[in-house]
């Protein structure tokens, strides 16, 4: 009986939260299947729903969408590169600090936390200058590097906490079994860290995928900007094609949703692991 009451309570809680989060998405969807003139009619369902907007996007048939495919490719390329690079840096750093116990590891951890005292937006201009100095402006790598810079400290922190929870005897057993540090990393550490790594990799990937400010500053050419920046251009016009903006936005939101769905098993355990001492 107590369990039933509890379940009922949870369901009652879930309904408003679900509505709250789905309502905006529903409206985006509504916009995207409405024709331009009926977009602002205020109806909960358009009189003549149409998928034409999506066709326009796919065929790049609008002024703002002439480079849609290359821009979504840029987004994807940058997000994946940022995810992979962050993961590589954070995993090796966490391994060195937590397992190999290298000298100065604690200082690195503290520095990593310290970076978050400065809001990312403050760093945008210095970052722009730096990228300019290295001739990276308008290059996809500039955004990748910027995103890795922003994501790595948190990633190192979480992965370090997670790897602290692996029993140290495993390393000792492996050492006695004859493993070099590199073999220990590859054969014992990586397989056991996979759940946390999936979570952190996804975090960095989505951070880069969703990034607007840095993309806007560091990339400026139609061919090099990400879709997030391109979406921003829509609003620059006096007469914005809202239905296309929303349809593109919907397309843009699909990959993250797919990633979340695919890795949902790792997300909860990965993001909370290291948060509390088990």
């Amino acid at each position: 009986m107590k369990r039933v009451t509890r379940e009922a309570f949870l369901v009652l809680m879930a309904i408003p939260i679900l509505l709250w989060s789905l309502l905006p998405i529903y409206h985006i969807f509504l916009f995207s299947i409405s024709s331009k003139d009926s977009a602002f009619s205020g109806a909960l369902w358009p009189d003549h729903p149409t998928l034409r907007g999506f066709g326009t996007i796919a065929r790049q048939e609008h002024f703002y969408l002439h480079h849609f495919w290359i821009q979504i490719w840029n987004s994807l390329w940058i997000a994946v590169a940022a995810g992979v690079l962050t993961l590589a840096i954070a995993t090796t750093a966490a391994f060195a600090i937590s397992r190999l116990k290298v000298k100065g590891g604690r200082s690195v951890m503290n520095l990593a936390l310290f970076t978050y005292f400065i809001p990312a937006a403050f760093l945008a201009i210095p970052m722009y200058k730096a990228m300019g100095a290295y001739g990276l402006l308008n290059n996809r790598w500039s955004l990748v590097l910027a995103m890795v810079t922003l994501a790595a400290p948190y990633a190192i922190w979480v992965l370090k906490q997670a790897s602290d929870k692996l029993p140290f005897e495993l390393d000792e057993a492996a050492r006695i079994d004859g493993a070099t540090p590199l073999q220990l990393f590859r054969l014992v550490y990586l397989p056991l860290m996979t759940p946390s790594m999936v979570a952190i990799g996804t975090y960095a990937l989505l951070l880069a995928w969703n990034e607007y400010l840095y993309g806007y500053l560091l990339l400026s050419h139609e061919q090099t900007i990400t879709l997030a920046v391109a979406l921003g251009h829509f609003i620059a016009a006096d007469d914005s094609p809202w239905e296309l903006l929303m349809a593109t936005g919907l397309v843009y939101a699909l990959p993250p949703a797919a990633i979340y769905y695919a890795f949902r098993r790792y997300m909860v355990s990965g993001l909370t692991s290291g948060a509390v001492k088990a």
């Binding site: 005897e169 000792e172 014992v188």
Partner: peptide, 11 residues
């Protein structure tokens, strides 16, 4: 060496 916690590789 045999450890108190066994230290078997879980994966």
């Amino acid at each position: 060496m045999v450890f108190q916690s066994y230290a078997l590789y879980p994966h």
